[in-house]
Structure formats: structure tokens, C-alpha cells
């Protein structure tokens, strides 16, 4: 009977003991998260004031950044979006730190992965922003060059170049984020390779006659040169 009672109460006792030892961890987690939310709110408030003082929205409007974010269907003020991002970023970071106070192996692994992933996310953001600017610049250069050369489809050509560059930049960013890198690489290679192949075939097939004419003309020119030399000898 005593053995049975021990079997019955031992797990309950263990559960109670582990619960009692876990409660401080849980409390610490809650305190860290609550403190984090407060700090995030404070940071948001301070950043709102700072961005307003430095006329951040006006800068974004003038530099064309606002127009870019509007294209992504985002209709808040740039400063509001930035402070909202900062707020949620800090909330997530503090939540991760808070969860680490639980001292659970699974959660600890998850948190370690999260913090290791942050630099990758940062590099992807840098690639995207610099890439977007470069794509815009190259597309503009193509447009000006094509217009000056008298091409009728200059705008389409510039947009096509821009689209291809954006695809390339997106592939680079996704590769950096390690989101299905194999698939991204394969998809990019197939798409890019396909486009180049399509262009080669189109150019090759469409230009058979032109190429033939060019080769024939070259041949005729060589013959003329030969004849000219003969006359000189005479």
C-alpha cells in the first residue's frame, strides 16, 4: 500500500517541485517581456520625436523613398512605419530574451537561431536597398541611351532591364536569408538562362538573313580588295 501511495504521489510531488522551481523563471520572463514592451514603447516615442525633428518624412518624400513604399501598398507616414518597425523589432528581441529566462533547451536553441539569423536579415535588407537604387540607376541609363539612339521601345527596354535586375537582387536576398537556397538558385538559373537562350534564339533566327547579307557583303569586299591589288600591280 505504501509502495502504491508512493507511486501515486511521487509524480505529483515532482510536478509540484518543478512547478515551484519554474515559477521564478516564468515571472522573470514576464517581467522581461513587460519591461521590453515598455522600453519599445519608449523607444518608439523618442524615435517619433527625433524623426519629426529631423524632418524624416520630408527627406523620404524628396528622395523618392515614400514613392517606393507606396508601391508596396503601404500608406502610413515613413516615420510612422519606421517607429512601428523599431517597436515590433524590440518587442520580438525582448520576447526572445524573456523566453531564454525559462531555461528550456528547445527555446534556447530557437533563440540562438534567431540571433544568428539577425545579421543575415540585415545583409538581405542592405542588398535589397542598394540593389533597388542600382537597378533604378542602370534602368535610367538604359532609357537615356536607348532614347538617344532612337529606339522606339526605349521605355519597355529600360523596364525589362529593371525587372531583370530586381529578379537578380531578390534572388540574392533570398539566398542570403537561406530561404530554400537550392530552389532559389535553380529557379534563378532557369529563368535567367531561359531569357538569355530565348534572346539568342530570337536574335539568331530573326537575323539569319541579315547575318547572311553581312557575310556576303564581307566576301564581296574582300574580292574587291583583291581585284584592287591586281590593278595596282599592273
Amino acid at each position: 500500500m505504501e509502495r502504491f501511495m508512493e507511486l501515486l504521489f511521487q509524480p505529483l510531488k515532482e510536478f509540484w517541485e518543478s512547478s515551484v522551481s519554474f515559477i521564478p523563471n516564468l515571472l522573470a520572463t514576464l517581467v522581461i517581456i513587460a519591461g521590453g514592451v515598455f522600453l519599445a514603447w519608449l523607444a518608439r516615442l523618442v524615435m517619433t520625436r527625433v524623426l519629426r525633428t529631423v524632418n524624416f518624412d520630408r527627406f523620404c518624400d524628396s528622395s523618392g523613398l515614400t514613392a517606393v513604399v507606396r508601391k508596396a501598398h503601404l500608406w502610413s507616414k515613413p516615420s510612422e512605419m519606421t517607429t512601428r518597425f523599431i517597436f515590433w523589432f524590440l518587442v520580438i528581441v525582448f520576447s526572445m530574451v524573456g523566453l531564454s529566462a525559462l531555461r528550456l533547451a528547445t527555446v534556447d536553441n530557437l533563440i540562438a537561431q534567431f540571433f544568428l539569423y539577425l545579421p543575415r536579415a540585415f545583409s538581405a535588407a542592405v542588398i535589397l536597398s542598394i540593389g533597388y537604387v542600382i537597378a533604378g540607376f542602370i534602368s535610367r541609363a538604359v532609357l537615356i541611351g536607348a532614347v538617344n539612339s532612337g529606339y522606339h521601345y526605349a521605355k519597355i527596354l529600360a523596364e525589362a532591364v529593371r525587372l531583370l535586375l530586381i529578379v537578380l537582387i531578390l534572388a540574392m536576398a533570398l539566398e542570403q536569408l537561406q530561404i530554400a537556397p537550392g530552389i532559389v538558385l535553380a529557379a534563378f538559373s532557369i529563368t535567367f538562362g531561359g531569357i538569355v537562350l530565348a534572346l539568342s534564339i530570337a536574335f539568331g533566327v530573326g537575323g539569319i538573313d541579315t547575318a547572311k547579307r553581312m557575310i556576303e557583303r564581307r566576301g564581296e569586299e574582300d574580292e574587291q580588295k583583291e581585284k584592287g591589288r591586281d590593278i595596282e600591280h599592273l
Binding site: 518624400d61 524628396s62 523618392g64 515614400t66 514613392a67 517606393v68 507606396r70 508601391k71 501598398h73 500608406w75
Partner: peptide
């Protein structure tokens, strides 16, 4: 001239 992308923004807003 003051807000370079304003016309695009305007068009996007109305179209959306």
C-alpha cells in the same frame, strides 16, 4: 518639383 514622386503616389492612391 518639391515632391518628385507625388504624381506616381497620387495615381497609385486613386487606382488602389
Amino acid at each position: 518639383s518639391a515632391i518628385p514622386g507625388i504624381l506616381d503616389m497620387m495615381k497609385k492612391a486613386v487606382d488602389d
